[in-house]
């Protein structure tokens, strides 16, 4: 796993400019969650408001919200499609995102309605993601 100035940034994931990660489950499904950088900037999450199963996703429209430190944040989905799974544990235990952001703290899964290759072309990965994160750390005083 890559570590950028103390923030975990797994090599096998893709990243959005909303500081969310995307995992390819198979050619038709991707999973999504908040990055280690996000959860550390946010501090302990107190709410995650999940979408409903079957809700349509649009990469330009936020799909879920979360709260920490009296702050409401929003995340846009990486792809067009529909919600195929949500991590219902987060409604009771939102701090799972802090404890295990890339594992038990996953947030949603999307069934794609566009080709996977097109989705991944919009996302960052590998060294490009690490370089972008380094810039964000400098900007936000991580």
């Amino acid at each position: 796993m890559a570590v950028v100035q103390g923030y975990n940034c797994p090599d096998d994931l893709y990243y959005t400019t909303d500081h969310a990660w995307v995992r390819v489950v198979n050619r038709n499904h991707v999973q999504m969650g908040l990055t280690d950088f996000t959860q550390k900037m946010a501090s302990t999450l107190t709410f995650v408001k999940l979408p409903g199963l079957g809700d349509r996703t649009d990469p330009n429209v936020p799909i879920f919200s979360y709260q920490s430190a009296k702050w409401v944040g929003w995340v846009k989905p990486p792809a067009a499609g529909k919600i195929s799974a949500v991590n219902a544990m987060l409604t009771e235990y939102p701090a799972l995102v802090n404890q295990d952001p890339y594992g038990q703290g996953w947030v949603i899964e999307i069934e794609l309605s566009e080709p996977l290759e097109r989705v991944l072309a919009r996302l960052m990965s590998g060294q490009a993601a690490a370089d972008w994160l380094a810039g964000e750390i400098a900007k936000h005083g991580g």
Partner: peptide
């Protein structure tokens, strides 16, 4: 603007 909640507040 900063994403760092503590710094922002």
């Amino acid at each position: 603007f900063t994403l760092n909640r503590a710094a922002f507040y």
